[in-house]
Simulated assay, not measured.
Amino acid sequence: MAGGLYVETRIRAGLECVWERTQDPARHQRWDLRFTRIAYLPVAEGEPQRFTYGVRVLPGLLVSGTGVSAGERHRPDGTRTSALRFACAHPLSFLTEGRGYWRYVPGPDGLRFLTGYDYEPRWGRPGRLADRLVFRPLMGWATAWSFDRLRLWCERGTTPERALGRALGETAARLAAAAGAVWGAAMWHGASPDAGPGSALPALLLAVGVPLAALLLPPLPGTPAARRCLRRPPGRGAASSAPPALLDRLEQP
């Protein structure tokens, strides 16, 4: 899946816990920013699981698509994997079709939970340009942020809803600190307009230093952060980061 997106996190929790919270659609849609709704469709025993998904692109507008998935719960090496293909015919969907996989790799330092996926953008050449510049980086960030939210749920018991509230609250606090620093610097400089050049230095440090700190300081440990996830495979040719053969056996929905 050369050129596709890759995200990996390490979760210090049991394999069954992570499996259930990623394979059950009601739980999956709680932590994954990329989906608003996921619902399984009835299928015959032994057949790949078919599902529908929805993404809310505007208030009151849900763009829906279909998909098919299959999983390998008992592998000889103790790992698990799942694969999916998806498609969306809605004209407002940026994606036309795609495919991806999840791997669950137990280890002494926790469970490596990783994904690789790729998709085809809509709207021809303009769509491919928008994808490269905007949408693909945004999708990578949303996947990594969601994986860290899942980690907090499995490790600390922080529900996805509570984690989102913390993220919004911390973001608001950082923005308020940055805005307050700029306002304070402006007031400081305005209070002594006739002072020498050296008097502007404290105001400049305040106006630049605080917003920079608000941007660069790492999030609190209980707040989800995309930066905690790997965005590239840890080693070239690593078997755990290669697409599973199961993916090739799935038909496009």
Rank of each mutant, 00 (worst) to 15 (best):
A239W: 07
Q49I: 04
A238D: 15
P25I: 01
L204K: 05
P108S: 14
E72I: 01
P91M: 07
L164E: 15
Y117K: 04
D194L: 14
S146M: 02
A213G: 15
R249M: 12
A44R: 14
R30P: 07
W188F: 11
G100S: 08
V134N: 01
V105L: 13
Y101E: 11
A130E: 07
G71C: 10
W141Y: 15
V210I: 15
W102Q: 08
A26W: 06
L175Y: 01
P211H: 10
C229D: 05
Y53Q: 06
R10I: 11
P234A: 12
A172F: 01
A173Q: 09
G157Q: 02
P48S: 11
W145S: 05
L246E: 09
P202Y: 01
A195Y: 06
A167F: 12
C229P: 02
Y101V: 05
A173L: 13
A89L: 09
A2N: 13
Y6R: 05
L138V: 02
A130V: 15
S199P: 00
L250T: 12
Y119C: 07
R228F: 08
P221D: 12
L247E: 13
R99Q: 13
A173D: 00
D24K: 03
G71F: 01
W19A: 11
Y104L: 05
D32W: 00
A176C: 05
L15R: 12
W102M: 04
R151G: 06
W188C: 00
L15F: 05
M139R: 04
T9H: 04
G169Q: 02
D148A: 10
G180C: 06
P202I: 02
L138C: 00
